[in-house]
Amino acid sequence: MSNGNMNLTLKVWRQKNAQTAGKFVTYKAENISPDMSFLEMLDVVNESLTLKGDEPINFDHDCREGICGMCSLYINGHPHGPKRGITTCQLHMRTFHDGETITIEPWRAAAFPIVKDLAVDRAAFDRIQQAGGYVSVNTGGVPDGNAIAIPKVIADEAFNSATCIGCGACVAACKNASAMLFVSAKITQLGLLPQGQPERYRRAQSMVAQMDEEGFGNCTNTGACEAECPKEIKLTNIARMNNDYLSAKLFREEEIHEEQHG
């Protein structure tokens, strides 16, 4: 088109809810500005669907600046689309060309049941964090922030793991739908820092146990997760998790008590 805008064909997965079967439906996205983000392009499509009385395409999104981790979408065979190191909300339409057909699918994993259309339920991630992704300190009564010196390199490395936004792209990208990059990022962050040491081995065990319970697949170190992670979390995290977990299980003498709740 003369103004640089594009006409696109979208093949979108539509599914009313987890209980019903879904299918691909084709839509036209017309007069799309290359400056739009991918989600703004969907907004345009949804606006016209709504005006026709059709239900808009449902997708998860919130901050639209690549940090909340809410947006997802498997676009043309890539989680968060073809560009590296960004989320779908940061993907701009100039990445595509006029006349292109774009296939949009939800994350596919047994542990991520479909909520509606392109939105999936990632509560499994929360449950894994609840199993042990924390340092057990109550509010108040903690030492001064500078009481423990932490080498800059360690703090920086912990930060790199801590940048995980919990979007689930690693699971979506993995051919085994494994969640290990996500789980290992938190285990690594807290395992590196002195504050995380007291619970380091306990944490690795409880988080891995919960991960297994949720029905994620296994890691085969293909590195697809690392390649598709919008925050570029490194595969090394998984090896660190393996080390902590296996050390805990095979070599640590102290017994592991799971606290009882009631």
């Binding site: 922030g145 010196a149 932490i150």
Partner: peptide, 22 residues
């Protein structure tokens, strides 16, 4: 001042200097 202490204790990876302090 308490907030910083609390967050450090939780494992928030604040920026640090080479000497290891915040």
């Amino acid at each position: 001042v308490n907030i910083i202490d609390q967050c450090v204790a939780q494992g928030v990876p604040f920026a640090r200097e080479y000497g290891g302090l915040l």
